[in-house]
Simulated assay, not measured.
Amino acid sequence: MIDITTSATDNLDDNISKIIQRGFRNNVTSKGLTLQLDYIDTTFDITFTCVIFTVAFFGCIGNLVTIGKIVLDPIYHTPTFAVIGQLALADFLSVTIAAFVRMTNIMNICNTCSHFVFIVNTSALISYSHLCFLSIVRYLITVHPLQSRQHLTVTAVCSCSLTIWIFCGVFEALLTYTTENWIYTIKLSLIVNVFVLLIVCSIITLLHVKKIRTLRNSLSVTDHSQRRMNIVVTVIIGIFVLYRLIWMAIGIIVLICFQEFSDELYYQTEGLFYFSIFIECINFSCNPYILFLSQFICS
């Protein structure tokens, strides 16, 4: 949504550019046109880079193994695992691209960062949408088993998933490429983040509560299993909420600082940028481990 390599046309845009460039270490003059890591200046930066790529590596492996297992093993050719496979694909793209974009100076080499922002945001939106889709599928299978067996097929799930991919791509394209005003873009991004946060949390929580109430009438589900299900949902929502709140906080900081760039404020919030990248990688790396295993634990 923000082209940090374009010269600002006024003081307002210039100050925002400085904040974003400083926040993500994108310094065109120092990095030049050679692709390299951004976080290598200090021992902490090197450690941080190693941690991020380690998390991203295990996230990629977990998502790829999940996809391969679901595709190759007929046992997992079910509606639930079809959604998990699509979620794993979106998470794989998200963690791979996010780690590459956040940890390197790729945005400085290219003429515009809009395309990278579009890809990162689209894959993230697809991931959130499939989390909601998975909650809906599990709810239907649990609460309406007879109707689900008839209508909720793998083909139907894959068709819905494809629709989600297309819708998210079109929606994010409209947000990314239809506005050039920085302030308007940041404000719009904050509004979208709030709605995404509320919608995802509401859908997952409400459907989970309704599913738990239905399962309480089933003799085959113990209180221990219900507690495990609650823990799984709590962990997923907790990581997601923390991830979105951090990026919303960064957007608010940019809006507060737009009139006069402050070195003091930047250094006070520098740790937030590090933490945001770490949580972003965790968010897209943990889903295959949590969701895939939870099907055996909680089903």
Rank of each mutant, 00 (worst) to 15 (best):
S148T: 11
E280M: 04
M229C: 06
T66Q: 00
V200L: 10
I166F: 12
S135K: 10
R228V: 08
L134Y: 14
R244A: 10
T9N: 15
T6Q: 15
M229W: 04
T142H: 02
L125K: 07
Q259L: 10
Y39G: 01
R244Q: 15
D10V: 13
T153S: 14
T49R: 08
P79M: 07
G62M: 03
N121F: 05
T122F: 03
F24Q: 00
V192K: 10
C160Q: 02
K18Q: 12
L206W: 08
V196M: 11
C113I: 10
F296A: 08
L174I: 15
Q150S: 14
A82F: 05
Y39V: 00
S220D: 11
L207D: 00
D73H: 02
G32L: 08
N11F: 14
K211P: 00
L197H: 10
L35M: 09
G238W: 14
R228K: 14
S285I: 04
G271W: 15
F48D: 10
T5C: 07
N181H: 08
L174R: 07
F167K: 07
C158M: 09
L188R: 13
L255N: 02
I239L: 15
S202Q: 14
C50I: 15
V192L: 06
G169M: 13
I4R: 02
V196A: 14
S285F: 01
I84H: 02
L190T: 01
V241Y: 11
R22E: 09
H130C: 11
V194T: 05
F44I: 10
D14Y: 13
V192N: 09
N193Y: 14
T66D: 01
F284C: 02
S17I: 11
V154L: 01
D10I: 14
I166A: 10
S262I: 05
F273Y: 15
M229R: 09
N230T: 04
V95K: 02
P145V: 01
I199H: 11
I252A: 13
Q259V: 07
V157A: 03
C257Q: 08
N111D: 13
V235G: 03
T29R: 08
T112V: 03
E172F: 09
L190N: 03
L293A: 12
I20F: 12
S202K: 12
C158F: 02
G68T: 07
I212R: 07
D14L: 15
M107Q: 14
R216V: 11
S220W: 03
K31P: 00
V71Y: 13
M103K: 05
S285A: 12
I203E: 01
V65G: 00
W165H: 01
A173V: 12
R149T: 11
